[in-house]
Amino acid sequence: MLVLGIETSCDETAAALVADGHILSNVVASQMDLHASFGGVVPEVAARKHVEVIGYVINEALGSAGKALEDVEAIAVTSRYGLIGCLVVGVAAAKALAYTLKRPLVGIHHIEGHIFANILSNPHIPMPHVCLTVSGGHTMLVYVKDLCQYEVLGNTLDDAAGEAFDKVAKFLGLGFPGGPVIDRLAAQGDRTAYNFPRPLRRSGTVDFSFSGLKTAVVNRFKGSDISTLPVSDIAASFQEAVVEHLVSKTVEAASRADVSAIGVTGGVAMNSRLREVFAERCRQEGHQLFFTRTDLCGDNAAMVAAAGAARLAHGESADLYLSAIPNAPLESAA
């Protein structure tokens, strides 16, 4: 089944064509440069960009796959979880296309999309497994019972991991987004130079917290002349604390859920140190590890199309009253 996926939940305008687990096209118009000057994503600026480029992005997804709009058999769109003004653009486009072409429509939860980015990358990942979805907008541990069956095991209590990277990078004058630049600097730094706190170590939960860690970094160097600081060492030590927090809670969740397979997905899954430490720990603990391929880690629409195909295969679809819900829980139906 040829599914058109549409994703506009944050700062990427994306459209993709996926047929039976094969990605035919995956177009992402990133707004990163647009938001960099503001030091973060500005919702109204993002929404304006979405409406400006959505048509071009869909057109290119079709063109680069060599398909016509009439070839599309179903339309899947991220309708839940994200910035409301941004979600609205994608959902409006999807509904208009579904109505005009008389094709089934399915609304996808953004986190479910990231889980499917992992499944697209690793079609043979065992079920059940535990999936860490981690980005600038969320940090969540999900027990994936089977396709489209989820239970949230843990969640961030404050900031998302990627947000902490952004805030620390901003404090160190490294610009936006913070993830890639901290990853790069950390490679040349000493990760034992500073002993930043490991959050929620004795909480007894598999939740996350990054706000205190970020504040610890800021407080440690507040008032210092940034240009004199060993930025690489700070980046490496901060990143190490984030990575250890993510890995230890994920491994703990897998043990508690008694599953041996772990998936890692979302923008922060691109982090090289996270990949290294996860590999090391999973080898020690005897877990199978499944990372999302790097080109599907960030927000994209191939993951939305894949999730949509799975929902439709389960007989689920949305009606044309489909709306956008910014903070819906993951378990909700399509």
Binding site: A47, H50, V51, G55, V88, V89, A93
Partner: peptide, 19 residues
């Protein structure tokens, strides 16, 4: 309304694009 106008314009654009 900024969000409101984006709904109608996106629907109009996609209907025109598809037809």
């Amino acid at each position: 309304s900024w969000t409101g106008v984006r709904v109608g314009i996106t629907v109009g654009k996609m209907m025109a694009y598809a037809t």
